[in-house]
Amino acid sequence: MAAGGDHGSPDSYRSPLASRYASPEMCFVFSDRYKFRTWRQLWLWLAEAEQTLGLPITDEQIQEMKSNLENIDFKMAAEEEKRLRHDVMAHVHTFGHCCPKAAGIIHLGATSCYVGDNTDLIILRNALDLLLPKLARVISRLADFAKERASLPTLGFTHFQPAQLTTVGKRCCLWIQDLCMDLQNLKRVRDDLRFRGVKGTTGTQASFLQLFEGDDHKVEQLDKMVTEKAGFKRAFIITGQTYTRKVDIEVLSVLASLGASVHKICTDIRLLANLKEMEEPFEKQQIGSSAMPYKRNPMRSERCCSLARHLMTLVMDPLQTASVQWFERTLDDSANRRICLAEAFLTADTILNTLQNISEGLVVYPKVIERRIRQELPFMATENIIMAMVKAGGSRQDCHEKIRVLSQQAASVVKQEGGDNDLIERIQVDAYFSPIHSQLDHLLDPSSFTGRASQQVQRFLEEEVYPLLKPYESVMKVKAELCL
C-alpha cells in the first residue's frame, strides 16, 4: 500500500493539533497551500530580480507567473513527485505547466533550498508574528487579574506546605514575570531571523556568478533584492546548502521555554482548584465526569500541561538535527523538520489560546482563602504575639514557653481530632496574655502579614508589564474561544 493518505478522510490519521486544537490561522501558515504558494512567490521574486539585473526574462513571463501564483494543481504535483521522487522539481514542473512561456526560467540558477529553506524562514517569521500578540493578550488578562487582587491576602506555599502570606495578585505576578520573559525572547528570536537568500547549491553562489558572467556586484544585488522582497532586513552571508540548523534550535528553545512557563502556571491553577481557592472557567453544560456528576475538573489547565510537556520535548529534535548536518548538509534534517517545526508552533498556539481562555474567566473564592488563612495564621502570628507581650512588660522566655504549650495543644486538636485551630481562643482565655487581649485582632490582621506584596504588584505592572504590552494595544480586544 502506498504511503500517505487522504487526510480529510475519517479513515486516515490526522494530527489532533490540526484537527482538534490549533487555530485556523496557525494551521494555514503550515498548510501545503501556504507552503507551495510561497515557493511560487519566491520563484517570481527571483525572476523579477534577475530581470532587473539584466537576464533575458520578459515582462510577459513575469506576468504569467504572477497570474498563476494561486493556480496550484495539487493532484498534478503529487503525481509528479511520485514520478520524480523530488518535491521541488515536482512543483517546478507543475508551475511550468500553467506558465508555459515562463517554464524555462522558473528556478533559474537556484537549488531546492532556495524555495525550501527560504519558505521555512518566512513561515517561522509569520508563525512567530501570530504567537506574539496571543502571548501579549494572556499577559494582559493576567495583569488585569493581578491588579484587581493585588491586596487580597492568601496563604503562600513553599514545598506545598503553608508559608508566609502573600497576595493573590502577587502570586499571579510570578506567572506574568515568566511570560514577559517569554514574550521578550519570542520577539528577540523573531527579529534575529535572517533570510537564507540566493546562495546556490553549497552556499557559494557559483551558479549565479556564472549567470551574471562573473559580476560579483550583481550577485550581491540579486541576494539583497530577493531578501528585501521577502520582507527581511538581512540575509546570511555564510550558508551551506541550507541555512544553519542552529536557527531551528533557537526558535524551538524559546517555544519550549514558553511551554515550561505555561505548565507551571496551569499546575498552580490545578492545585488551587483542589484547594477550592480558584477555578478555571466551567461552562453551564460542561460535564466533569461521566460517573461523578459533582466533579469540576480543571480540564483546560490539564490540557495545557499535557501539550506543554510535548512542546518542551520537541527542542531535542533540532538539537540532534543540527549535530548531524555533515559538511554542507545531509538530508537527516528533512523529514524531522517537516514534523517538529509545525508541531512546535501548533502546540504553542494551542496552549496560548487555551491559557487566554482560562485567564479571561478565572474565578476566585475569597471566603475559602480566608478560612485557610484562619487555619494557619495563628501559628504564624506567634512571633508577633511574643513581641507584643514583651512590649507590655512580659518575659520573652516565659511567653515563648506559654505559646509553645498552647500551640501544641491547638495542633493536637487540628491533627488528632480534625478540629479547627483554636490557638487564639486559648490565648484569649489565658490570664497571662490579658495585657494584649485587646491587640489580638490587630495582630491577626492578614494584611499585616503580606509585606509589600501589593506595592510590588503595582510597581511591576507599571514599570515592566504595561510598557512591554504597549506595541500590542491594537490587538488586545480579541477574545479566545474554545470549541473543545
Rank of each mutant, 00 (worst) to 15 (best):
K477L: 13
H217Y: 14
L319A: 01
Q397G: 08
D11E: 09
P467L: 10
P298S: 08
Q458K: 14
V219W: 05
M389K: 06
L258K: 03
A291I: 02
N421Q: 03
R309I: 07
Q61N: 12
I57G: 01
W39L: 03
S434W: 09
I358M: 14
I237V: 10
T58I: 08
Y21A: 00
D445R: 14
A230P: 01
V465N: 03
A3N: 15
G8A: 15
C173P: 00
K402Q: 07
R329W: 04
N384Q: 12
D117W: 01
A47W: 00
N71S: 11
C305V: 05
G231Y: 07
I249V: 09
A78I: 08
S407L: 14
P162R: 03
H310E: 03
Q285H: 09
G109K: 00
S359H: 12
K402A: 08
V315D: 03
R404N: 08
V413D: 06
R303E: 02
D317Q: 08
V475H: 14
D59L: 11
G240W: 00
S448T: 11
L193W: 00
G231E: 08
V254P: 08
I57F: 06
Q458L: 12
D268C: 09
K75M: 11
F195I: 09
D333R: 03
D248F: 06
N353K: 12
C173W: 00
D182G: 03
T58D: 10
V324Y: 09
D6G: 07
L355W: 07
R337D: 02
M299Q: 14
N336H: 02
A163D: 00
Y466V: 12
S434M: 11
L53P: 02
K134I: 08
A344M: 07
V247I: 14
V413L: 10
L108I: 11
S67Q: 09
Y432K: 06
K147M: 12
A143K: 05
K415R: 07
L53M: 13
V92K: 01
T204Y: 00
L252Q: 04
F433L: 07
R137F: 08
R234L: 11
P16Q: 15
C98K: 12
D268M: 05
Q286Y: 03
L183Y: 13
Q416S: 09
H86F: 02
E383Y: 06
A47C: 06
A163W: 02
T202H: 02
N297P: 03
M225T: 03
T111Q: 01
C266F: 05
L155H: 04
E464W: 07
N384P: 13
D32F: 10
S67I: 11
E213D: 04
T450P: 06
P133D: 09
Q285R: 12
N357C: 13
K233V: 11
K170G: 01
Y365C: 09
C180V: 09
E280F: 00
D87E: 11
V254Y: 09
F160Y: 12
A47F: 01
S301D: 06
G451I: 03
L258A: 11
S323I: 02
Q325N: 15
